[in-house]
Design a protein around this nucleic acid. Sequence first.
DNA 1: TTCAATGTTTAGAC
DNA 2: GGTCTAAACATTGA
Length: 287
Amino acid sequence: MPELPEVETIKRSLAHEIVNKKIKNIWIEPSFKKKIFPNTEKFVKFLTGKKFAPVERRAKMLIFGVGKKDFVLTHLKMTGQLVYGPKRGQAIGGGHNLDQEKQPNRFTRARFNFVDGSTLYYNDMRKFGFMKLLSQAELKGELAKYGPEPFDKEFTFKYFQSVLAKRRNQRIKTVLMDQQLIAGVGNIYADEICFAARVHPETRVKSLRAGKVRALFSVIKKILTKAVKHRGTSVNTYVDGAGQAGGYQRFLNVYDRQGEKCYRCGAIIKKIKLGGRSSSFCPNCQK
DNA sequence: TTCAATGTTTAGAC
DNA sequence: GGTCTAAACATTGA
């Protein structure tokens, strides 16, 4: 799945394209029906004939408004992709790198066909993602489980300190990725944040010195801001088939760079398993 | 053939 | 209760 910067990028590229588009019909791939809530029949029946309102992002999820009181909440998980294809083979949007030139493709799990002839494709290789039709109250309930967005006013240094105080025995990277504490940081950016702050990802929160806590707080926003600016790491946006790839790849310092030299000190980047996920870091810079 | 992959949840062990 | 690991979901590709 795309992380916060990728989902934000998808939101920005899709939002103005699909607002006010009227849904003519919806197709759901049979094997994906179990990922549609409350169920495919109700989902399709309710949405057919409706128009999309503005699109929002919360954590790594997208929220498509439908009228004033209903919403489609969707998560792309590891391999999801949302692509809007107007006529003539244009494709706008993105997510996991799949066959984006071809829409639909073999990973297309859902299609929203609009009355003007354009289509929104939901593609997901591994089918981990979901789409939920929710009332305002239900949506609020779902979102309540997540911590503040890193760009929210509530995400202050004080808040960050209070988060760490609650997780003193855990490893810092695990805490950074906990969606209940901070919304939107995933595996790539957690690795990059630890590198930028010169913190070993396995460091116990309680043994972080004050300066490191400061450094972490400041690089969280810095890295995510830069990643959003460059349209994320794993998102490709296509217009008329001309690829405008997500641009953050070239700024990655540690993620997926195991065995290569650290740009800062030349040491060899190491990869370990942490919390069931891969974790890359520089053993020399991050102690 | 085996392993790992941008995520999340859950069961079990200690 | 706290924390960690493995497994599950499903699929591809190195």
